[in-house]
Design a protein around this nucleic acid. Sequence first.
DNA 1: CCAGTCTGGATAGTGTTACTGTCCAAGTCA
DNA 2: TGACTTGGACAGTAACACTATCCAGACTGG
Lengths: 210, 210
Amino acid sequence: MRISELSRITGLTVPTIKYYIREGLLPSGTAISATQAEYDRAHVERLRLIRALVEVGRLSITTVSELLGALDAPADDPDDDPDERLGRAVATTHRALSARPVAGAPPPERALAAIATLGWQVNPQSAALRELESALAALEMVELTPGEATLRTYAGAALTVAEAEVIGLPSESAAETLRTVVIGTVMYEPVLIALRRLAQQHVFSSRPRR
Amino acid sequence: MRISELSRITGLTVPTIKYYIREGLLPSGTAISATQAEYDRAHVERLRLIRALVEVGRLSITTVSELLGALDAPADDPDDDPDERLGRAVATTHRALSARPVAGAPPPERALAAIATLGWQVNPQSAALRELESALAALEMVELTPGEATLRTYAGAALTVAEAEVIGLPSESAAETLRTVVIGTVMYEPVLIALRRLAQQHVFSSRPRR
DNA sequence: CCAGTCTGGATAGTGTTACTGTCCAAGTCA
DNA sequence: TGACTTGGACAGTAACACTATCCAGACTGG
């Protein structure tokens, strides 16, 4: 198919598609002449993925580019442990999703303390740890610091969800697993957030009146 | 204190503070002369809150303005049920946090079906419901639709968290409760997200190797 | 065969957001 | 008195995500 049909199918304008190609989010079509290129199903799916990450995952074009880059990177080191590669992909994903670190930021003390209490094993350089730290610091600022019980409840809920995700992982191919982990990490966050908000509504509406 | 000291204490530049005053996020100081105004502790706390909402909650200035407006609104109707007022505040918060609705959006069928399965009571007009719908629609697009079991796990985790939040609510004053609910809704989301990512790391790192 | 449409590639322009900079006359402090 | 600060007004900026325009070279329908 030509670019105009790609545009029609996906609902994106031709200039937008060209823009994504320029930014490296979408591979260019296979050139069949100096001014003609052919696009296929893979392009359609890629564009759907991009829109899902941008609209639902609220990622910037740059972030999407990084993420897709990590997914496209071939398994160039054959004797590289697949589990380790997965771990690295998760770390990259978390880094891409997090605000970029501030230069003179203090060590994530509150977050490390919380994780230590939970007995979790995480990389102390993790971007997620920095995110937790700044969230806890901000809560402290506005005097809404969570108590240990609250933190445990949140952590328990997070762990339940993370375990479910790992159990449901496809295992046919390493590439498929990788895709599911990376895209799943991004796209299930809005689901969790929306469900939390709905649960909040449910709890409030079914709460006994005084 | 004068504006320069407010700037020094909060670490925000004077022009930024002026900008927040212009945008209605921060009340102006009490004028003590034509070119002099006095600021106090309340201004410092308000600025900390604004920065927390912007940096950690990732809210736009407009959204922060809406949220603060909802908090500042006095209890103008005395025979208005406090629980109902709380419910409305939650709805407003969810609306402020969500992407503004698209005009020709389809009804949230998937989301309503999911909520029905769970037996939750939520407002069918809810912004959170629309958010869930678009997240589920996007997951369908990239062929990562959650199974019923997965959805239940996520919903269970969300409910646990929501219940803990309601239990931990302060009850001294209606205004204090309102503040905690609105700010808590916004600021605990990043905590939950960060914990989910850390739990993911923990689960991956402590997973048995094949 | 040829007028009209479409193509890829290049480059410039737009609207929004969140500030940032500059200017001013009126005040304050040393 | 004179350097500095203030509130208020307004213009400018940087980043982002497109959007528009231009071009010469295909391709297509009559």
